[in-house]
């Protein structure tokens, strides 16, 4: 399962209903998890921020462009996002980084700051020391499909 978190879906629904959704997030950070964080991010297993060179990375997005009718709407990162290089392993043993998670804050794991998450297919050793992980422009997309 992937997509927008319960908290952020609530924000979107409140926007539609004009029920004080709050201000749009001014910052979006991308981080990792070694477990599926779940809809309310209660199962988040993030590498320790500030340890081994790990930190959530600030993202910038390309300008929204309306797609063809019936096509998925999306925004994508407009600049390369780089995590690391790691100075020590970001997870223990053979535990892979399984998910990327988007937050409105650079630290903390409260549901209110969660935005979206999705699975990634990295081998477990990518979390070893000496590794940088990069996402080229356009590689990270947040999508809404038509129904």
């Amino acid at each position: 399962m992937a997509g927008f978190t319960r908290s952020f879906r609530g924000t979107l629904i409140k926007f539609v209903a004009n029920q004080t959704p709050g201000s749009p997030p001014t910052t979006i950070y991308a981080g990792f998890s070694t477990a599926n964080p779940g809809d309310d991010v209660s199962a988040i297993a993030e590498p320790t921020i500030g340890t081994g060179g790990y930190a959530r990375q600030l993202m910038s997005f390309s300008a929204y462009s309306a797609p063809a009718a019936g096509a998925t709407t999306f925004v994508a990162n407009s600049a390369t996002v780089t995590w690391g290089p790691s100075s020590a392993a970001w997870s223990t043993g053979a535990t892979p980084l399984t998910h990327i998670v988007y937050w409105t804050a650079s630290t903390g794991v409260t549901e209110a700051t969660s935005v979206a998450y999705g699975a990634i297919s990295l081998p477990s050793q990518v979390s070893a020391a000496g590794i940088s992980i990069t996402a080229q422009p356009g590689a990270l997309q947040l999508q809404l499909a038509p129904s």
Partner: peptide, 29 residues
């Protein structure tokens, strides 16, 4: 699988790993 990869292979370090391009919703449930 992961266990065989970990047992018989070691990642080259330092290295830049590129995340694949995908949308976080394009994998069907």
């Amino acid at each position: 699988d992961d266990s065989v990869l970990n047992l018989h292979f070691t990642i080259v370090s330092p290295q830049e790993v590129v995340l694949m391009a995908f949308g976080h919703g394009d994998r069907p449930t």
